[in-house]
Amino acid sequence: MLKYLADSLVYQLMGIKPGTMLGEALDFFFYDSMKVFLLLVVIIFVVAVIRSFFPPERSRKLLGNRREYVGNFLAACLGIVTPFCSCSAVPMFIGFVESGLPLGITFSFLISSPTVNEVALVMLWGLFGWKIAMIYIGTGVTLAFFAGIIIGKLKLEHLVEDYVYRIKMGESAMAAPTWMERFAYARDYTKDIIGRVWLFVLIGIGLGAWIHGYVPMDFVLKYAGPGNPFAVPIAVLIGIPLYSNAAGAIPIVQALVEKGLPMGTALAFMMSIVAISTPEMIILRKVIKPKLIAIFAGIVTVAIIIIGYLFNAIL
């Protein structure tokens, strides 16, 4: 349906000949943008409704006094459904630590929450298909699980700022929202997210379309193909400063995969964009010492590089 719409728009309405580079690129651009925006609206809305059932206060209760492993897994899964914004990272961190949750479990949550986010999921689903999107979720949860366990084993509790341990949390008894309020929340949330990413999505898809139409086949293969053993770490290092631009980066990555970029390298790149964000690190500095931030970033970076090599070997 959308394909037909894009085709008739480019080839009939705009009168561009099929098979030309311009035609290909424009067709690709319109088709992908329509698909992605449709998915963005629907999925973000649904995710927001689900999320309204899992405020962080509830996750904190659900995690209760869980021990390692089970707790890490549960935290990684809750990270997917709990709404996360970097401005809430500090109260969430303190709340988890205050409830007696081990540091490693808290980190499993903190890693999974931004990594498995709905915008990245929609972009992956729309542009790579549901299988890659599922692989991405699975990998994100696994990454959060193991990185959290390692941080837990390292016994780094002394690297949390002392005042955090002295805070006593109060109780709040907020009324559960009605369905009307959940839908209103989901509507506002969807509007807010789309308002923030639409430009990046269009630029990303535009660049992707340009690559699709104009960059010669196998161009990427020459530089970042399986022949280059450093492609994965370089991709990860490029991804780290691109924080919050997953929406714009994923369409470009998709076009590059078409031109020969291995899937593992692509996955590692996308993951590094969302998992390690400088603003979040700066905010977390309020509750943990720089050394722990460095350890946290280091473990996640190395883990993502391993994930990249692993998927290059098996996909």
Binding site: P55, P56, E57, R60, P83, C85, C87, S88, V90, P91, M92, I94, G95, E98, Y163, R166, I167, K168, M169, G170, E171, S172, M174, Y185, D188, Y189, K286
Partner: peptide, 26 residues
């Protein structure tokens, strides 16, 4: 932050009326 935590909220911004939290995280 120490004072915010005494209200029992984990997501900010939050709003309290006469000491009772009305809304958090939006």
């Amino acid at each position: 932050i120490q004072k915010i935590m005494t209200y029992g909220v984990l997501s900010t911004p939050a709003l309290a009326i006469d000491g009772v939290v009305k809304v958090a995280g939006k």
